[in-house]
């Protein structure tokens, strides 16, 4: 597969993320954000169970599902339970574009904090002028969008 097709597929992954959020917002608009969130998790739970059963057969790593390595490793699912609620509220009240930009801004600011502190066992990155400038630009961009 050539590079052009791969880049188109990467952009398609971004479009898919927006379609996912639009779909969640449509469910939230018909019922409410909390039921929409619960229904989304119920469906994706079944889908991920099917994926698990399908891929586990070909998985060479025979790791046990219950060997989670500490309760803190379950925090991902806990935080994730709030994400569709926040995004659906944003989509219904601010629209897709501003919410998407807000989510992207939040992702990069958090990544920057994790990078600079070296959390999650990741290598600690030294903050330089360029990185601080990019952080300032992200914050300024989000503030300008609210004007």
């Amino acid at each position: 597969m050539n590079n052009k097709k791969i880049y188109i597929l990467v952009a398609f992954a971004g479009i898919t993320a927006t379609v996912l959020n639009i779909s969640n917002a449509a469910v939230a608009a018909k019922y409410d954000v909390f039921y929409g969130n619960l229904a989304f998790y119920a469906i994706t739970c079944i889908a991920s169970l099917i994926t698990y059963i399908y891929f586990k057969k070909s998985d060479k790593n025979k790791k046990k599902l219950l060997d989670i390595g500490g309760p803190l490793n379950l925090l991902g699912g806990t935080l994730g339970a709030f994400v569709p609620i926040f995004i659906a509220l944003g989509f219904l009240n601010l629209g897709a574009f501003i919410t998407t930009m807000g989510v992207i801004g939040g992702q990069f600011l958090t990544s920057m904090i994790i990078d600079s502190k070296g959390w999650f066992g990741l290598p600690k990155l030294k903050m330089n002028k360029v990185k601080w400038l990019s952080v300032a630009l992200i914050i300024a961009g989000v503030i300008i969008m609210t004007m």
């Binding site: 709030f82 994400v83 509220l89 501003i98 989510v103 939040g106 958090t110």
Partner: peptide, 25 residues
């Protein structure tokens, strides 16, 4: 709502990193 979308972005990154640790196990 904009603040909530920023929080969503923050949670997505934390979730991704925690899940990465979980995936090692």
């Amino acid at each position: 709502y904009l603040l909530l979308s920023l929080c969503a972005g923050c949670f997505i990154v934390l979730q991704r990193n925690v899940n990465m640790r979980l995936a090692k196990n």
